[in-house]
């Protein structure tokens, strides 16, 4: 399987703190990749490198074979869409206006058909004239996802996409992401909930203290030993008959 993103010996972080020391990773194309690890392990910061909010001190990042350091922000936007952890807006754009902002880097920024398709995919078309300040958390998350889809890239980065959502909305957002993966998207999602990661992701990356603790196919990587070494917690297995597989849950 070709790789959507390759990180090669990345060193970098913030002005006052180097977070990553020569880490290397590859993100398989068309996979649902969960990015997990304790708070402060560098998950959100890693995403910031991928959309160029942070620049590597050393090392290289390639997105769909293109060197990220030479890609203009607009060219990158046509490859990668991003959904933030807290995308709440204080200024009341309508849902359609918010989704249309995803077309900024595109040669046809006002392509209504493309905008409506993204909204339809995320089930927010009926909310098109509603201000985003008046929709629920789940609807906002879908709107932000539609905005990322409207960019026309095939890679989606999501920073804790189901944080603060009730289980029904969590389920619907995760199903939507799963459908997008089936449609050819590569999804990279920061997930704290390891049950969700095990239920939906095909690959998982564990970060700890700015280093890669483990990565590979989710079913192989998520083990009692890894959870103990990454989080310092014991865990045990339960069988989920609906998924027809064993899931690891923390020992509360």
């Amino acid at each position: 399987m070709a790789d959507a993103i390759v990180i090669d010996a990345l060193t970098g972080g913030y002005e006052d703190k180097t977070l990553f020391q020569r880490i290397s990773l590859s993100f398989p194309k068309g996979a649902f990749i969960a990015l997990a690890g304790p708070n402060g392990s560098g998950k959100s910061s890693l995403l910031k490198f991928l959309y160029k909010q942070l620049k590597p001190k050393e090392g290289a990042i390639r997105v769909e074979q293109a060197d990220l350091s030479t890609l203009k922000q607009k060219a990158l936007a046509q490859r990668i869409g991003f959904v933030p952890q807290d995308g709440r807006l204080d200024f009341s754009f309508t849902v359609e206006e918010t989704v249309a902002m995803g077309r900024y880097a595109n040669p046809l920024p006002d392509d209504v058909e493309r905008i409506h398709t993204a909204m339809e995919t995320c089930s927010v078309l009926e909310l098109r004239d509603t201000p985003v300040t008046r929709i629920s958390g789940g609807e906002l998350q879908r709107t932000l996802l539609a905005r990322a889809l409207a960019q026309d890239g095939k890679i989606l980065l999501l920073d804790e996409p189901v944080n603060h959502l009730d289980i029904a909305h969590q389920r619907s957002v995760m199903h939507l992401l799963q459908d997008l993966v089936k449609g050819g998207y590569t999804v990279v999602a920061v997930l704290h909930d390891l049950l969700l990661a095990q239920a939906y992701s095909s690959w998982i990356i564990f970060l700890k203290d700015g280093a890669v603790a483990a990565y590979g196919p989710t079913a192989e990587v998520v083990t009692e030993e890894i959870l103990k070494s990454v989080y310092g917690v014991e865990s045990h297995r339960i069988f989920d008959p609906r998924l027809d597989k064993e899931l690891l849950i923390p020992a509360w």
């Binding site: 995403l47 909010q53 990158l76 869409g81 991003f82 995308g87 900024y104 880097a105 905005r147 990322a148």
Partner: peptide
Amino acid sequence: LLDEGSARSSGL
């Protein structure tokens, strides 16, 4: 008016 990550990743 978006958060910086969204603005940047949209191409700004």
